[in-house]
């Protein structure tokens, strides 16, 4: 009875993992061939998809653009969100509650609505040109900063408040106390907030479509357009992109686990 239960449980996990990974892995296998569709004729091993991905200027620009946008908006979001969290944490209860509510709006809101509303205000009402990238970056910061705020706030709660007071008593200016005492303690929250911001921006489609300049594309908007077009060259080069991103994610997750495992081990030793 117990063994049967364990077998069923394991079988379910394997089945779900198969559902998750078969498409990605199969696409990865086909990205190394000449095939123009999965399940289609395969003419042996080929790296031409990877060659296209690195040689095609349009694809290269699109990838650099996506990464720059993600890192740029994440940096702005991290500064805003962190300062916001520190300020809100020390504010009076009502002010704090109001900021928390406002912060929650983009979190629960649908990305379509967020993107559309930013577009209507900035582009239609105020008349900022899409080509300035201001609406696009603003939209991405709206998407990301609430999550930075949410990942910094728990760190503030855990922090020993008397450290800041002690720094002041020992003659530090408030700014010094902030940079030398408070911020280092918040660092893990700030870093994870930043990482989260980068991933959210990289994954976004809706805010980007509604606010981007017409000549600019991120991976998401590019992929959606490419699947509508008939260029098989580009289509299969995107398989290569998918495979590279998959590998980067796997390496990043493994590294993160190894690092946090080491940290945990060293903490246990203490």
């Amino acid at each position: 009875m117990k063994i049967a239960k364990k077998v069923i449980a394991a079988a379910w996990l394997v089945l779900v993992l198969a559902f998750i990974y078969i498409p990605i892995l199969l696409l990865a296998v086909y990205s190394f061939t000449d095939a123009v569709m999965v399940g289609g004729a395969v003419d042996g091993f080929s790296l031409h998809n990877y060659a296209t991905l690195f040689r095609n200027e349009e694809l290269r620009d699109m990838i650099t653009g996506t990464v720059l946008l993600a890192v740029g908006s994440a940096l702005i979001a991290t500064v805003l969100g962190t300062l916001g969290a520190i300020g809100a944490f020390y504010s009076r209860k009502t002010a704090k509650g109001l900021i928390n509510y406002a912060n929650q709006i983009p979190v629960v809101n649908a990305d379509v609505v967020t993107g559309f509303s930013v577009c209507v205000l900035l582009i239609v009402v105020i008349g900022i040109k899409k080509e300035t990238f201001v609406p696009l970056v603003a939209g991405h910061v709206v998407l990301c900063s609430p999550f930075v705020y949410l990942s910094v706030l728990p760190r503030l709660r855990q922090m020993d408040n008397s450290l800041y007071e002690a720094a002041l008593d020992l003659g530090a200016t408030p700014a010094q106390a902030l940079f030398k005492v408070v911020l280092p303690q918040l660092l893990p929250g700030i870093i994870s907030g930043f990482m989260l911001a980068v991933t959210l921006s990289l994954d976004d489609y809706f805010i980007t479509t509604y606010t981007k300049p017409s000549t600019f594309d991120t991976i998401s908007t590019y992929v959606v357009n490419a699947t509508k077009g008939g260029q098989t060259d580009i289509k299969t080069a995107l398989w290569a992109l998918s495979t590279i991103i998959f590998l980067i994610v796997v390496v990043a997750v493994v590294l993160m686990n190894v690092l946090s495992g080491k940290k945990r081990a060293s903490e246990e030793r203490i």
């Binding site: 998750i20 990605i24 199969l26 696409l27 086909y30 994954d203 998918s242 991103i245």
Partner: peptide, 16 residues
């Protein structure tokens, strides 16, 4: 898979 761009993941699923 959450960290892989969703349009690329849907592309993979679509091909299958």
């Amino acid at each position: 898979p959450m960290w892989i761009n969703f349009t690329l993941r849907i592309t993979a699923l679509k091909e299958i």
